[in-house]
Design a protein around this nucleic acid. Structure first.
Length: 282
DNA sequence: AATCGTTCCTGATAGC
DNA sequence: TGCTATCAGGAACGAT
């Protein structure tokens, strides 16, 4: 599913493809507009905010992709099955022809951007101020920002009572982690997912911060993770080349020590770990 | 205030 | 073969 590396890959793809383009027309599916959780402002209001706007910059904040327009911003979240795909000029674009396509942006040069999302957990917002989104107001530091120091992370974790895996998924602790890379970062740092945050030593927090960065950096370099269940695709429809070391590998051997990778459930969410490299808390 | 459980949704898969 | 049940996940929300 799209986490920071996948969203960053799409951002980089789109940066090359559509910065400078003008949105000549936009179509949003009736179904998308009717989904209560999308908080869609209505076709008319959305059109009014978007049509005629020029895309000035593409930014990413956590798992949110932000199109800075000459006036206001367009914000996407890919949820767990969202795709943003650039269509070449030649492609025929009947709004009804593609399953699960919820939005279609047509540029002045004839190309198009399609927002496809089968599970509809994605988000689509047109705002004048990014802080209109509560998730962006409360979001924690970007993992590659200089403010993301191990000391600050230790300060946050010391006060928390939850398990470290749950804290990594909390976007207020740090931005952009999802289920795959949280498991990968914990494996990389040798920390069991069920450890309580406050029990982590300074050395473990240092290792964790380092692992978060290393895992994300490598995943970006491989253009993200595509698994059978997550049909993640970049902006041109290509799968990512990253292969997790523990996520989705329960029953398979640990790449480091050969022990069998195990799977557990925490708060309705799965986690994966090596019982030898990541000793269980006592 | 922090945390927990539930909700939204569809496709893949397992089981009968 | 064809049906039904289960599972997967991010963020928001209500309850505790």
């Amino acid at each position: 599913m799209p986490e920071l590396p996948e969203v960053e890959t799409v951002r980089r793809d789109l940066e090359k493809a559509i910065v400078g383009a003008t949105i000549a027309d936009v179509w949003v599916s009736p179904r998308w507009a009717s989904l209560a959780h999308t908080k869609f402002p209505g076709h008319r209001a959305f059109r009014q905010r978007v049509v005629g706007r020029r895309i000035e910059r593409l930014e990413r904040r956590g798992k949110y992709l932000i199109f800075r327009l000459d006036s206001g911003s367009l914000i996407f979240h890919l949820g767990m099955s969202g795709q943003l795909l650039v269509s070449p000029k030649s492609e025929i674009r009947n709004p009804k022809s593609e399953k699960h396509r919820h939005a279609l942006f047509i540029f002045a040069d004839g190309r198009a951007l399609r927002f496809v999302d089968p599970r509809t957990f994605g988000e689509l917002h047109a705002v004048s101020d990014l802080l209109e989104l509560s998730a962006l107001r409360s979001m924690g530091p970007e993992p590659f920002d200089e403010t993301f120091t191990w000391r600050r992370l230790a300060d946050v974790l010391r006060k928390k009572r939850v398990k470290i895996k749950a804290a990594l998924l909390d976007q207020r602790v740090m931005a952009g982690m999802g289920n795959i890379y949280a498991d990968e970062a914990l494996f990389e740092s040798g920390i069991h997912p069920e450890r309580r945050c406050a029990t982590l030593t300074n050395d473990e927090v240092r290792r964790l911060r380092r692992a978060v960065r290393a895992v994300l950096r490598r995943a970006i370099a491989s253009r993200g993770t595509t698994l059978t269940d997550s049909r993640y695709r970049d902006a041109f429809g290509n799968a990512g080349g990253h292969r997790p070391k523990v996520y989705g590998r329960a029953g398979e051997p640990c790449v480091r020590c050969g022990a069998t990778i195990e799977r557990g459930v925490m708060g309705g969410r799965s986690f994966h770990y090596c019982p030898k490299c990541q000793p269980r808390p006592t």
